[in-house]
Design a protein around this nucleic acid. Structure first.
Lengths: 150, 150
DNA sequence: TCTTGTTAGTTACAAAATCAACTATTATTC
DNA sequence: GAATAATAGTTGATTTTGTAACTAACAAGA
C-alpha cells in the first residue's frame, strides 16, 4: 500500500508541468509573429504590446497599460519613449492632473497597428486551425483563467 | 454584404490573441513557483530548467538540453557553470568525443531536484484543479501541440 | 497651510539576455 | 592525409531588463 509496484506514477514529469508547457507554447507560438514586428518594423516585444493596447483600446495612460497588460512601469516608460521617437504615438499632458500623460497613436502609429493586427489575426487563425472550433474556444477560456483575466 | 453592419467583428481583439494569452498565462502561472526556486534556492530560471531536465531525464550533454528545452546554448553554458559552482552538477568529458561533456546531478543536486519537483507537482495540481480532469488533459495536449512537442 | 502620504512616471545602476566571434575537437572530401 | 567543413561549448561586447531610488504633482489630515 505504501510502496506502489509502479514507481513511475510518483515521478515528476517536466514535460507535463503546466508552467513549462505554457512557456514552451508561448515561445514557440510567438516566434513567427515576432519576426514580423522585429525584423520588419524594428520593434521590441514590449513596444508592439504597448502599440497594440493603444490601437485596440484607444487613448490610455501609461498606468492603464501597466495594469491591463501587467507590464512593469519602467518597461512601459521606455517603450513609450521609443514609440514616440518613431512618431508612432503622441503624449498629451492631462491638464486636470498634471502627473498624467494621455497616450494615443499618431496616424503613422495607427497605420502600423492596422498592418500588424491584420497579420496577427491571420496568424492567430493559423494557430487556432490546429484545433476544432470548440477546442480553440475552450483553450482561450482556460488561458484567460490561468492568466487571471476573468 | 461587403460592409457588415457590426464592424466589431472585423476588429482585432488583443485579449483573445493566442500568443498574448499564452504569454500572460505562462507568466502568471510561473510567478509563484519562481519565488520558490529564486528566493529559497537562489536559482535563475534557466538554472532550474537545466536542473529539472537533468533530474528528469538523467545524464545529458549541454547540446541535448539546448535541443530539448530550446534554450540558447550560451544560456545553457552559463547555467551549467553556475550549477557546477554550487555543486549541483558535475561535468564529465566524453572520451569518445572530447568536445562533449556529459552532465549529471550530484547528490546535492538530486536532493534539490527532489525538493523542487515535489513542490512543482503540488503546484501543478493546484493549477490543474481549476479545470475538470478532462479539460486539464486537453489543455496539456493542446499546449504540447502548440509547443511543437508531439 | 504644512507635513505626511500617495500616485504617475523617469532615471541610474546592476543583472541578465542576445549576438557574434572564438577555441578545440571531430568529420568529410579531395 | 592535408584542407575544409561541421560541431560542442565558451567568451566578450552590446542590448535589454529588473530593482531601487528619484522627481513632480496631487490628496488628506492635523
Amino acid at each position: 500500500m505504501t510502496q506502489k509496484n509502479n514507481d513511475k506514477k510518483d515521478e515528476f514529469d517536466l514535460r507535463n508541468f503546466l508552467p513549462f508547457l505554457l512557456n514552451q507554447a508561448a515561445e514557440e507560438s510567438s516566434l513567427e509573429f515576432q519576426r514580423v514586428y522585429k525584423d520588419r518594423y524594428g520593434m521590441l516585444r514590449t513596444e508592439w504590446r504597448v502599440l497594440f493596447h493603444l490601437g485596440n483600446h484607444g487613448e490610455m495612460t501609461a498606468r492603464d497599460i501597466v495594469v491591463r497588460a501587467k507590464i512593469h512601469k519602467t518597461k512601459v516608460s521606455r517603450a513609450v519613449r521609443r514609440l514616440q521617437q518613431r512618431r508612432y504615438l503622441q503624449r498629451l499632458r492631462d491638464e486636470n492632473d498634471r502627473r498624467v500623460e494621455r497616450l494615443s497613436l499618431t496616424t503613422a502609429g495607427q497605420k502600423v497597428y492596422r498592418e500588424l493586427s491584420g497579420i496577427a489575426r491571420e496568424y492567430d487563425g493559423k494557430l487556432a486551425a490546429r484545433f476544432t472550433t470548440g477546442e480553440a474556444a475552450l483553450l482561450r477560456m482556460m488561458l484567460r483563467r490561468l492568466a487571471g483575466m476573468d
